[in-house]
Amino acid sequence: MSDTLPQAALPDAALQEPALPDSTLLDANIAHRYSDFSLEVDFRIAGNPSAPWTILFGPSAAGKSTLLRILAGLTTPQQGRIALDGLPLLDTARRIFIPPGRRNIGFVPQRAALFPHCTVAENIAFGLRHLPPAERSHRIDEVLTLVDAQPLRDRKPARLSGGESQRVAIARALAPRPRLLLLDEPLAALDAAAKPQIIACLRRSGIPILYVSHDLSEIWSLPAQTLLIESGRITAHGPLQQVLAPHREKLLAQLH
């Protein structure tokens, strides 16, 4: 819950109410219902440079992916208000809807969804149309270096392994320099050896990340905030190890 945000991340928050504190990166209040499931969440994510990651943790079918799709603009909720850096991306009451490509938000789904007819470089260039060719090529090299995928530059997706595909998908999402990167269990289908490498690539990027996971072993050691989501409601919000301590037994069971 938003009131459990660490005070260090929100200096003078009380004095600045009702305006958003300067450090608020994402502010979301969403109500969405489909078939027999309802998602009702109200939370803020602080732009905290020392812990730029927020883990969205919860069991399967808790509403994690739906929430991410709503934040990215791929699903429109029945009611809601979303602001990034104080700028409205969605406000159903005021009929504001900023389309996905203009939200300044990157999104990496569980499957890499690379364009199969394009090379790795062309995939990454897809979101860099606004840059002049030289600058575009430079940015492609930059993000490929960041995810350790330089040698894959001219390969087609059919010739990439699962881990390579995911690294390229992350590079493609990072290339336009999004303000926030949403990751929907991007490591779920990968073997254990590939996971730490990709997490390290992501941490090097320095971009704030909202990371969906239901695998404690994947995220336990990260310096991150955590939103715990259960049955479409956020039930806890705070530092990762504090929020997830009650789940640690499950982690130990997973590891043994």
Partner: peptide, 26 residues
């Protein structure tokens, strides 16, 4: 795959560009 169309939209492509660069070549 609808996920490809979504990724193209997230990367800023409008419908004409999705048609020209994704749907027609695929």
């Amino acid at each position: 795959d609808p996920a490809l169309r979504e990724q193209a939209a997230l990367l800023g492509a409008g419908r004409i560009r999705i048609l020209r660069e994704l749907l027609l070549p695929l």
